[in-house]
Design a binder for these strands. Structure first.
Length: 588
RNA sequence: GGGGGUGUAGCUCAACUGGUUAGAGUACCGGACUGUCGAUCCGGUGGUUGCGGGUUCGAGUCCCGUCACCCUCGCCA
């Protein structure tokens, strides 16, 4: 090693010792006769002092040092003179009195300094990612990620899980997300697809008898990005044989308890709370509700049906709902203009017709421009239903069930943030269970799988497959942390006949099923054990545990929202020769 | 595909309703300084106001188009 210690290591115990440090020049303070350099590596910072005692040659070279130069300094560890200690620095009681300096590498003037307070634009950070990754917050995020994955691997190893790698080059399955395709040179005109998840492979592993499988697996989905979504992401993927939903959830409960304990010092109460999908939609309008705060939805469709207010009555009479929420004590917080903004939000983002509102006056009466459209008794019933108290603000949306869910869930999330209804440091873990098997696709006019087509229905719902698929519930469970879907899983179908029946319901005819999933259908006929599993988004977990608000901040080399890499310039055009070899011609 | 935000010096930002030569901090360059730690002090360099077009006597500012980045709806089995 070129160094004897790291830049975060030296303490008063080392006083008098010779030491050699290597690192980057974080800052330098040149006083002509004496010169200070804060030398930085990922372990910390140490002050190096160059003075006439360092020798004229060394001092002269030190004067040429600039930000981000890489140097090796040898010297004596010394106590700082009284009164010059730096309490903000772990190494602040000592300094290295330089005797020898070697410039290992110079740096161009960096576009930004990793130690600076002001953060450059994210564009600049991504363009010069190697500089950004030198920043302490990024190094902490990378370290947190490393520690989390280490804990995960240890945990599953203790439980007897086997880590098996599955292929990155697989078969395209147009169901679900768009695939990233990889052309085959050997078979021109054909393509591999990068995995959206190792779903089918892990089921095959169960059939192969591996019993408990785990993998930290890279996955790819060619869909539009979000603050918590990358085209390339990492899943904790696992599968178990001979299990029921509770068995999988118990394993994850244990993992979450360990991660929360080891990484955050939080003790989780197990089992984690479990709520059905129906209850979540009823109470929060969302299948991944943020349960750090209440603000539950209230249904007043029955009142709306009788009231003269046309907007409400029409919604109620056409099978829709009128629901709303009570922003406690928020009437003064939102002016007319503020409410207009909320209205614009639900209208533009969720397609609501509008946002009805009431402010609760000092007498507990509902006041609003639309109040005249209601009879006093109806207003009183609504006030009671919302538990309206003076100073409250009631916000209501009328429309089809799923629209009221989406709009009010969005509104609830927004109000939770704007009204500081929760402590940002708080963590809430819960399960949402018993999802519907199918969702009806209005455009295509048919059933689609809510999770994926290999999901097993609840045994008691089997008759519903034929009679009323919409009511059929799956053996499915999602882990929700702070309103973020951290992962989801299901018990799988292990019976060929049932699998074929589900395919039929989804409009996947026998021939297509055979083409795409024939290998699975075949494998199911060779002694498939009952099995199920789950996949958790590791990037999201790191984001949540690190209290980051952006998934890019916990990925070393992330993509932009347009799925490009600003550092490498990927994706890029390729040589005509490469295309020719693959039998591909670009049409544009 | 839709909605919104941002784009001015290497970086972070400013520039009232359109009006003189587009400013500040920082970085950078030069000078001074032997105990600083966001060092300080003096001086200096640095601009295609993302790009293209238009309106106007005059555009960083207004209009149209376009590009990039971010947030979001759709999408993400």
């Amino acid at each position: 090693m070129l160094r004897t210690h790291t830049c975060g290591e030296l303490r008063t115990d080392h006083i008098g010792q010779q030491a050699t440090l290597c690192g980057w020049v974080d800052t330098y303070r040149d006083h002509s006769g004496i010169l200070f350099v804060d030398l930085r590596d990922r372990y910390g910072k140490t002050q190096v002092v160059f003075s006439p005692q360092s020798g004229p040659q060394t001092l002269a070279v030190a004067k040429t040092l600039r930000a981000e130069y890489v140097i090796a300094v040898t010297g004596t560890v010394a106590a700082r003179p009284e009164g010059t200690e730096n309490r903000n620095l772990a190494t602040g009681r000592i300094e290295l009195r330089a005797e020898k300096l070697e410039v290992l590498n110079r740096s161009r003037t960096p576009p930004f300094q990793p130690g600076a307070k002001e953060l450059p634009s994210e564009e600049t950070r991504l363009r010069y990612r190697y500089l950004d990754l030198r920043r302490q917050p990024m190094q902490e995020a990378m370290l947190l990620r490393h520690r989390m994955i280490k804990l995960i691997r240890d945990y599953f190893d203790e439980l007897g899980f086997v880590d098996v790698e599955t292929p990155m080059l697989g078969r395209s399955t147009p169901e679900g997300a768009r695939d990233y395709l990889v052309p085959s040179r050997v078979h021109p005109g054909t393509f591999f697809a990068l995995p959206q998840s190792p779903q089918l492979y892990k089921q095959i592993l169960m059939i192969a008898g591996y019993d408990r499988y785990v993998q930290v697996a890279r996955c790819f989905r060619d869909e539009d990005l979000r603050a918590d979504r990358q085209p390339e992401f990492t899943q904790l993927d696992l599968e178990m044989s001979f299990v029921q939903p509770g068995d999988v959830m118990d394993v994850i409960d244990g993992l979450m308890a360990r991660l929360a304990g080891q990484l955050l010092g939080l003790e989780l109460q197990l089992p984690l709370p479990r709520m059905t999908y129906d209850e979540a939609m009823q109470r929060y309008g969302h299948d991944a509700p943020d349960l750090r705060f209440g603000l539950e939805l209230v249904d007043v469709t029955d009142v709306a049906r009788e009231c003269p207010f046309q907007v409400f009555r029409a919604a109620a009479e056409s099978g829709g709902r009128v629901r709303g929420l009570n922003a406690k004590a928020a009437a003064s917080r939102y002016s007319r203009k503020g409410i207009d903004e909320l209205t614009q939000y639900v209208v533009e983002d969720f397609g609501a017709q509008g946002l009805a509102w009431f402010k609760v006056d000092a007498e507990g009466q509902l006041a609003s421009p639309i109040a005249k459209n209601f009879e006093p008794g109806q207003l009183a019933r609504m006030a009671q239903r919302f538990d309206a108290r003076p100073g409250d603000l009631l916000l209501l949306v009328a429309g089809p069930w799923d629209l009221t869910c989406r709009a009010l869930a969005g509104l609830r999330r927004r109000l939770g943030r704007e009204l500081n209804l929760y402590d940002p440091k708080q963590m809430h873990f819960s399960w949402i269970v018993e999802f519907p098997m199918f969702a009806y696709d209005e455009q295509q006019g048919g059933w689609t799988a809510m999770h994926h087509p290999f999901t097993a229905p609840r045994p008691q719902d089997l008759p519903l497959l034929k009679d009323d698929p919409g009511k059929c519930r799956a053996q499915a469970y999602d882990l929700v942390i702070n309103g973020v879907e951290a992962g989801g899983g299901t018990i799988r179908i292990h019976d060929t006949d049932l699998q074929q029946e589900v395919f039929r319901l989804l409009g996947i005819d026998a021939q297509r099923a055979q083409e795409r999933f024939g290998f699975l259908l075949e494998a199911l006929q060779y002694g498939a054990p009952p099995h199920g599993g789950i996949a958790l988004g590791i990037d999201r977990l790191v984001m949540l545990f690190g209290r980051l608000d952006n998934i890019r901040d916990c990925i070393a080399f992330p993509k932009t929202q347009r799925a490009t890499d600003l550092m490498t310039g990927a994706p890029s055009e390729v040589d005509v020769a490469q295309l020719k070899e693959l039998g591909i011609r670009i049409d544009r």
